[in-house]
Simulated scan of single mutants.
Amino acid sequence: MRSSRAETPGGPDAGTGFIVLAAYQPDPELFARQVRSIREQTITDWRCIITADGGPEGVVDLLREAVGDDSRFEVAGYEERLGFYGNFERGLRSVPSDAAWVALSDQDDYWLPTKLATMIPHLTEVAAVAAQARVVRYPSGDVVSETTGRRDVPIDDYILNNQYTGGMMLFRAEVLETALPFPRLPTPAEVHDHWLAVVAHFRGGARVIPDIVQDYVQHDGNVIGEARSERFNPFRSWQTVKRIVGRYEASLSPRAVARVTYNVGVGWREAMMLALGARLPLDTPDLARVLALYGPNRRFWRTLRATVRAARRGDVSPRSLVEYFAGWVLGGVFRLRSRG
């Protein structure tokens, strides 16, 4: 039972799904277009909870201008700003336990009218499904890519190289029984979609489908956005590390750089494994194997062999492989590994 989650007054009717849209100072045009695309879904039995990070002022007015008095939409405003990770978690706590399904939404994308109708049937076979999007530049409308190219790969591989993007995901409400509360590790790798997909595997399976169901809009305000390339670029990676270190550490000292590199790669995976190990029976299928690869008692050569094989299959990008083991090596040099 999810006793820590808020109950929605009145509860949903049988078959009602819940869409959680995390908002923070949304662009008015993009926000209006997104909520209208939700309104126009061919599946109509749903409620949309919009969690306004940093307060509801402005979001309520934008919503009213976009969809009028459509009672399926509601805004939950929070004065305390938590960032997208904590804001999605707050919204998911509001989803009742008997919800038929749960979808996540960004504030600035665009859903095709048949998105929900395309994805919901898969939940009869798996606990979570993710689809593809067309990548579009705003405001020019230029198509960056006709597809996001996410792949349906084994759990061992998407723990290292996430294939699930929140705004393209839909899952059974029961996933939240294990997923909440979210694990915590202050690092840019701490993302809700990765965690939810990993949990979903152990609650009935997760799947990536090839269908294009939306536009994934890229603009200057994206928190994460779509990576331009999976090819490893040492200069770009170093620039990224410096930017991240400046956010999470007080200096650019070698130890600070090592700690951030370690947490982004190794630390976040370990945080997920620790949460899974504490919340699931240890005889859960596949759990012992992924704990051995990425958990606190992982061993370097065992994990390296498994991930190199995945890279050769094309299931893990070279960049993800290099960044993960760079963090592992730096963690060893600076004695950052405290568990196992």
Rank of each mutant, 00 (worst) to 15 (best):
D220S: 13
A227H: 10
T187I: 11
G205D: 12
G225N: 00
Q218R: 13
G221V: 12
H201C: 02
R203A: 09
V223Q: 07
V199F: 05
G205W: 13
H201A: 03
P210Y: 07
R228N: 15
R184V: 10
D220I: 11
E190Q: 14
A227C: 04
G225L: 00
R207Q: 13
L196Y: 04
E190R: 07
H219L: 12
H201S: 02
P188Q: 02
R203V: 09
D211I: 04
T187A: 10
H192W: 01
V213Q: 14
I224M: 01
A200V: 12
V213A: 10
D211E: 12
D193G: 00
V208Y: 04
V213F: 10
G225K: 00
G205T: 11
L196G: 08
H201M: 03
E226S: 10
D220P: 13
H192G: 12
L196D: 08
G205M: 12
A206I: 01
L185M: 04
G205N: 09
H219K: 15
A197M: 06
A197D: 08
Y216D: 15
A200I: 13
A227V: 04
A227P: 09
A200M: 14
N222K: 08
L185D: 04
P188D: 00
T187D: 10
D220C: 11
N222A: 11
L185G: 03
I212Y: 11
V213G: 12
A206K: 05
P183C: 03
V217M: 15
A189R: 00
R184P: 11
L185R: 03
Y216C: 13
V213E: 13
P188W: 00
A189V: 01
E190M: 10
P188I: 00
I224S: 01
E226K: 12
P210I: 03
I209K: 05
F202P: 12
R228T: 07
H219S: 14
D193E: 01
R228K: 09
A189F: 00
D215Q: 14
W195K: 11
W195P: 09
R228E: 15
R228H: 06
I212Q: 11
E226H: 11
G204R: 07
E190F: 01
G205P: 14
R228G: 13
N222G: 10
V217N: 14
D215S: 07
W195D: 07
D220R: 15
V213H: 09
P183S: 05
L185K: 03
W195E: 08
Q214N: 12
R207M: 07
A189M: 01
I212S: 14
H219F: 15
W195I: 07
R184W: 07
E190A: 06
L196F: 05
V223G: 04
P188C: 01
F202E: 03
R207G: 06
A200E: 09
